[in-house]
Design a protein around this nucleic acid. Structure first.
Lengths: 342, 342
DNA sequence: TTGAAAGCGCTAACAG
DNA sequence: CTGTTAGCGCTTTCAA
């Protein structure tokens, strides 16, 4: 285990080297106006020369403003998070703020509501001027600095939120399957929460509207993972009266379904129609994803809201809703194609 | 501007509430063994109850280990960075470490070698146990904690590095164009640096090997941006003896070329062949990108190396080279198609 | 087994 | 315009 033996060059070193006091250095660093031009020059030179940079931890502890925005996100690997990330990045790039992303790399690792609060207090109030939390499960956060939440699993109580219209999105998806002529439409759900119940409601509503009786056997509980898609597909396709279409809670799950289904010799979309919720079909060549994309928009909007809050404009309990655009046909095929080519 | 008026619950609050001293709380927090079972229980309860979480900045300042790995990256929006990110995330997910990503959102914002050093000292040594720097321009860093660099623009002096084989990748790309029968092959370069000169060398070598005379007019200087692709394409296509193929330094630039070219009524790939370097063709539906992808592998490998370094295994001057796989045909068409559909 | 006290590097009064 | 000083919240000796 490496010891942090010697500390890096500190403000004291700079002070010594330039023959002034630490507070003067600090003033130069923070661009205070009350420093002699000459002194400033000299200090700047020394800083340059020594390769000094103020230490984030120390600075954060003392000053109220860090010009850092925090993003707390379960992972930075899968489509959903990355798309949001792109939006956030886009907005950050043209702002005065830098971005600090905190992730455990996996929502399995320890992402419960309790830990979310911990992450928030870890960053907010000191290290960052404000924090964006992606898909939080916690209902509320205590924090001194502003918070914006993106697409929460629960209804958030005391913070502005940007979210996808899960009801509408699910309606579009299921309705598409109905219009394709399907009567046996299965649903692999997400983890329980607001997102999920909205989609579930949509599923039921569309079935009802189409006069299709609700069959509890066709609803398989999932958790947004690839695995639950695999398992779900196996269970559903083993049913005596097997479904002809599956609506999956998100793309991860849909991927799982595709994998399982292929092994069973069931072909998509010939034998089985498949739709995932968080479709990102435009992303085929994904650096081209346009800023119109709902997930990117959520990210951009969250940054905008947060900066407003940080800079003092009182945020009313703003709730910003972004409609999903599901381009079902495309995504359905893209998925199938892709899985085959794996 | 919001003032950080009231501070969050601190270790002192916990101490007061549980009737012990702060040092005891700290001991519990850090799982020291010399705390009475009973005391520990009580403290844990209070912590839970108060929703306390140790402040990152403060903790970092005092302790040598934070179990945080830092990633310094120019942006988290474009294909290249995201692909590396996915690799890093993948490795982090199964490790004991959390990930802290620091970005300004744009390499335009202030990404010079000087600033890179600043970012490193901001994080490393206090906030993080080690840092991965993506595509650094700085030749060396001073830091107390370990550093690993990914795909640097220059030859890195004192740190382990993971990088793509730019020479080989460029050879494949240009050779592909030659095999297509092209004789007038233009090259829009990246910013000057190691990556670029390697590719340039490959470009020249392949031309020589094919007996094609080198024409300086066909080499247009770029900077990895979309814009330089647009400009470059216009200039190149205005040439009396215009090129029939363009090799772009990266995908961003290639996108720029596609855009400009379309406006000129030149069609890809019929009238003009186009290849970008950092092709990520498998990423059509990008959550499916496999861990075999060179860019992801770089990310994963960097984490591995860094953790080794942090945990004391002395790292020799390891240089890990990952060959590029360019699937030129696919990517070329995908690009063109996609740009048209914008 | 615990507490008191000394800082980590920095900023922000307050004096000069 | 500049220096002195008092902490921010935490960990870590050193005593008790």
């Amino acid at each position: 285990m490496t010891k942090k033996t010697r500390r890096l060059v500190t403000i004291h070193d700079v002070a010594k080297a330039s023959g002034v006091s630490v507070s003067t250095i600090s003033r130069v660093l923070n661009q205070k106006s009350d420093v002699a031009e000459e002194t400033q020059q000299r200090v700047l030179e020394v800083i340059q020369q020594l390769g000094y940079s103020s230490n984030l931890a120390a600075r954060s502890m003392r000053s109220s403003r860090t010009y850092m925005i925090g993003l707390i996100v379960p992972d930075v690997e899968y489509a959903y998070s990355l798309e949001v990330l792109k939006g956030v990045n886009h907005a950050i790039a043209t702002s005065d703020y830098d971005l600090l992303i905190y992730t455990t790399g996996s929502f399995q690792k320890q992402d419960t509501a309790v830990h979310e609060q911990q992450y928030v207090s870890r960053l907010n109030g000191t290290v960052t001027d404000g924090v964006i939390v992606v898909t939080p499960s916690a209902r509320s956060f205590s924090s001194t600095a502003p918070i914006v939440s993106i697409d929460p699993h629960v209804i958030v109580e005391n913070y502005p939120t940007v979210y996808v219209d899960h009801y509408q999105g699910a309606v579009e998806a299921v309705r598409y399957l109905v219009e394709l002529g399907h009567r046996r439409i299965a649903y692999i759900t997400g983890r329980s929460g607001m997102q999920n119940s909205e989609r579930y409601r949509a599923y039921c509503d569309v079935l009802a509207e189409a006069g299709i009786p609700y069959d509890p056997d066709l609803v398989h509980e999932g958790d947004y993972s690839i695995d639950c898609g695999t398992v779900g597909a196996r269970v559903l396709l083993a049913l005596p009266d097997r479904p002809t279409a599956i609506f999956a809670a998100n793309d991860q799950t849909a991927i799982g379904v595709s994998e399982a289904v292929e092994q069973l010799g069931v072909r998509i979309p010939d034998d089985l129609s498949l739709i995932g919720f968080d479709n990102i079909p435009e992303a085929r060549f994904y650096q081209l994803t346009s800023v119109d994309h709902p997930l990117m928009q959520m990210g951009m909007m969250a940054v905008e809201l947060l900066i407003k809050a940080i800079e003092g404009q009182t945020i009313e309990e703003t709730i910003t809703k972004i409609p999903t655009r599901l381009v079902v046909r495309k995504s359905c095929q893209a998925l199938a194609e892709n899985v085959k080519s794996l």
